[in-house]
C-alpha cells in the first residue's frame, strides 16, 4: 500500500501540491484525475522518488521514501514501473531494445527469453511490427504504447501510468485500458493511473481520486465519485454526457479530444 501524507511542493512562488493526502490500496487500480496543469504528473513523480517534496511523507509498505538515500531509492524502484507522459523512450535504441532494457538490467533471463518477452509485450500493445523502428519514427500514440510495453516488461508490483490513453484513437484507448486492467488482475499489481479519460476510468478503475487546486478533493469507487456532491467533480464527471448532448448543436459544436 502507498500512503501519501500532507504532501507539499512548490516551484518558486507557484504552489502546486498543497497538502495531498491519499491512500493507494494494494492490488487495485487507482485513477488520479484532475484538470490539466494541476500537478498530477508532479504527484506521480513524487511517488517514485524522482522529485523531493517540500513537506510531507510518502509511505510505501511502511517505508518513507522521502527519507531514503539514492541507493535505497534505487532498490525500492526495482518494484516499480513507470510510464512517462511523453514516453521518455531512449531515442538511441530501437523500440525492441527499449522494452528489453529493464529486462537486461534487472533479470537473469537469457537473450532468447528476453526477446520472447519483448515480442509478447509489444504484441499486447499491437506494436510488434515496430520492433526494429527507432522512437523518432513512431507516431505519438505509438510511442505511448511502446513506453507502456516497457513499463510492463518487468511485471513490477507497482505501476504508475501517466496518461496511458491520451493521444490514442478511441478504440485503442479502451484496448489499452483493458490491457492495463487485465495485466493488473493477472499479476495482482498495484496501479496508479493518471487520466482525463472518464470512459476508461469508469470501465477499469477500482478507485478514483480527484486532484484539484493542490489537494485531493474526492476519492472513492467510480459509483461514489459519480454521486460525489463537489461541483468540480460533478462538472468533470458529466462532461461526457454534456458533450454527447451537444453534438450537432449549432451554436456550441462539441469537439472531442484535447
Amino acid at each position: 500500500m502507498i500512503k501519501i501524507i500532507n504532501l507539499h511542493k512548490s516551484f518558486g512562488p507557484q504552489k502546486v501540491l498543497r497538502g495531498v493526502n491519499l491512500e493507494i490500496p494494494k492490488g487495485k487500480i487507482t485513477f488520479i484525475m484532475g484538470r490539466s496543469g494541476t500537478g498530477k504528473s508532479v504527484l506521480l513523480k513524487h511517488i517514485i522518488g524522482l522529485m523531493e517534496p517540500d513537506e510531507g511523507q510518502i509511505i510505501v509498505d511502511g517505508q518513507d521514501i522521502t527519507k531514503m538515500s539514492a541507493k535505497e531509492l534505487l532498490k525500492i524502484r526495482k518494484r516499480f514501473g513507470m510510464l512517462f507522459q511523453e514516453g521518455a523512450l531512449f531515442d538511441s535504441m530501437t523500440v525492441g531494445e527499449n522494452v528489453a532494457f529493464p529486462l537486461y538490467e534487472h533479470t537473469k533471463l537469457s537473450e532468447k527469453e528476453i526477446w520472447q518477452r519483448v515480442r509478447e509485450k509489444l504484441a499486447q500493445v499491437d506494436l510488434l511490427g515496430a520492433i526494429d523502428k527507432m522512437p523518432s519514427e513512431l507516431s505519438g500514440g505509438m510511442k505511448k504504447r511502446a513506453a507502456l510495453a516497457r513499463a510492463l516488461a518487468l511485471e513490477p508490483e507497482i505501476v504508475l501510468f501517466d496518461e496511458p490513453t491520451t493521444g490514442l484513437d478511441p478504440v485503442m484507448q479502451l484496448n489499452i485500458g483493458f490491457l492495463i486492467k487485465k495485466t493488473q488482475q493477472q499479476h495482482k499489481l498495484t496501479c496508479v493511473v493518471i487520466s482525463h479519460d472518464i470512459i476508461v476510468a469508469r470501465a477499469t478503475a477500482d478507485r478514483i481520486a480527484f486532484l484539484h487546486e493542490g489537494v485531493i478533493i474526492a476519492q472513492g469507487s467510480p459509483e461514489e465519485i459519480a454521486r460525489f456532491p463537489h461541483p468540480f467533480v460533478q462538472e468533470f464527471w458529466q462532461t461526457l454526457e454534456l458533450g454527447s448532448k451537444e453534438v450537432g448543436h449549432e451554436e456550441r459544436p462539441f469537439e472531442p479530444g484535447t
Binding site: 522518488g49 524522482l50 539514492a70 534505487l74 521518455a88 531515442d91 532494457f101
Partner: peptide, 18 residues
C-alpha cells in the same frame, strides 16, 4: 541534455538504473 529534457534520465532512475 536532450535525454534530460525529454525525461530519459528520469526514466533511467525510474527503472532503477543510476
Amino acid at each position: 541534455g536532450t535525454m534530460r529534457v525529454t525525461e530519459q534520465i528520469d526514466a533511467l532512475w525510474a527503472m532503477a538504473v543510476n
